[in-house]
Simulated scan of single mutants.
Amino acid sequence: MVAFLQLTTIIVEDYDDAIAFFTEALGFELAEDSPSRTNDGRVKRWVVVRPPGAEAGILLARADGEQQTAAIGTQHAGRVGFFLRVDDFEASFQRMRAAGVEFVAEPRTELYGRVVVFRDVAGNRWDLLGPATPA
């Protein structure tokens, strides 16, 4: 039996702003942007982004209603909830910084490698992770 995580969802305020952040600032690919409908028939979009070559992706879901709007940026209650592993930490960090990504601290070295926390377009916290030594 083959099983793998295909998608996870990030609730966002606006599809296009989220697509721009993930594709331009993080270098993800726009895997799908299709018209869709909610369970009760209202128009929405099915938007999936993912790192180049990855099978797992992120479904960007525009908030629908007060409860979902309140969850924007707090899907993990202020904890880091997403982890982006890169081969060249310094190049990725500099590229993301130049693209306007908000970092909440300076990079540091841990036993598992280089790490720095950043916020996505919705305000969720991520770890940017790389090898302990430069690539």
Results as ranks from 00 to 15, higher is better:
R114H: 12
R119H: 10
E90V: 00
D120H: 15
Y112T: 15
T74L: 10
R37A: 11
I10Y: 02
F83C: 02
V116F: 06
G73P: 06
S36M: 10
D16K: 08
A3H: 15
T8F: 08
A18R: 15
I10M: 04
F93H: 15
L84V: 01
Q68D: 12
P134H: 08
F21R: 06
F89W: 06
P131G: 09
G53Q: 08
E55H: 15
F93P: 08
R97F: 05
L128A: 07
E55T: 15
S36K: 14
V43K: 15
Y15F: 04
D33W: 07
R97L: 13
L128F: 05
T133H: 07
A105R: 12
N124L: 11
I11P: 00
T8Q: 06
F22P: 00
F93R: 10
P51E: 01
V12K: 03
G41N: 14
E24A: 10
D127R: 04
L129D: 08
P52T: 07
K44F: 09
G65I: 13
E110G: 15
V86P: 02
T9S: 05
S34D: 08
F21Y: 05
F118M: 02
L59A: 04
P51F: 04
G100N: 10
R62A: 12
V104I: 12
D127V: 09
T9N: 02
V2D: 15
V101F: 01
N124C: 08
D33F: 08
M1I: 01
L30V: 12
A54M: 08
A135N: 08
V104D: 07
E66L: 01
A77I: 13
T8H: 04
R97H: 05
A135W: 01
A25S: 05
A105H: 11
I72F: 00
T109M: 05
L7D: 07
M96G: 09
P51L: 01
V121E: 08
E110Q: 09
